[in-house]
């Protein structure tokens, strides 16, 4: 029998959520406004604004949020459980048309809104072919 070697990775920094089975995938709406700005809405119920992290790295927009809550305590029996608090993680590949320096994010009522404005320089550029 072959020895089963498994590499176990431990997440030592709980503030930064990693993609994995412990994080929820938030539901999102993505639509375009009349001015060309793409709006991304993500549902992160229970997350406070200080726990929400939106960043762009190598053309990938990453959203992490912490919606974990204090447990109700031992005196409280669960009669019905439909949802749990948890961490949120979702990543999106950004188009080159997005102006990465002017991305804005806001949070209200458990809904994260990320405005992705269109870059001015996203126009088509003609490339001259020089004579070899």
């Amino acid at each position: 029998m072959a020895e089963n070697k498994k590499k176990v990775e431990v997440n030592v920094d709980p503030a930064r959520v990693q993609p994995g089975e412990d994080a929820f995938t938030p539901l999102v709406d993505i639509f375009e406004q009349a001015d060309g700005t793409t709006v991304l809405l993500a549902e992160v119920p229970g997350a406070k604004s200080e726990s929400v992290d939106v960043r762009v790295d190598k053309g990938v927009l990453t959203i992490t949020a912490d919606g974990r809550r204090e447990p109700m305590g031992e005196d409280y029996a669960r009669t019905y459980t439909g949802f749990m608090g948890g961490q949120f993680f979702r990543a999106f590949a950004l188009s080159d048309e997005v102006d990465r320096d002017n991305i804005q994010a806001s949070l209200s009522d458990g809904l994260l809104r990320v405005n992705l404005p269109r870059a001015e320089a996203a126009q088509t550029r003609k490339i001259e072919i020089s004579d070899g």
């Binding site: 119920p45 109700m72 005196d75 009669t79 949802f83 949120f88 809904l111």
Partner: peptide, 29 residues
């Protein structure tokens, strides 16, 4: 699925405490 939220059907938690009941309802947005 590890999804949260039920679209337009909001999920609910019900807790039964010693002196009170607590109902939580996820209504993001």
């Amino acid at each position: 699925g590890r999804n949260i939220g039920g679209g337009v059907f909001p999920p609910v938690n019900v807790y039964n405490g010693p002196a009170e009941l607590v109902v939580e309802c996820e209504v993001a947005g």
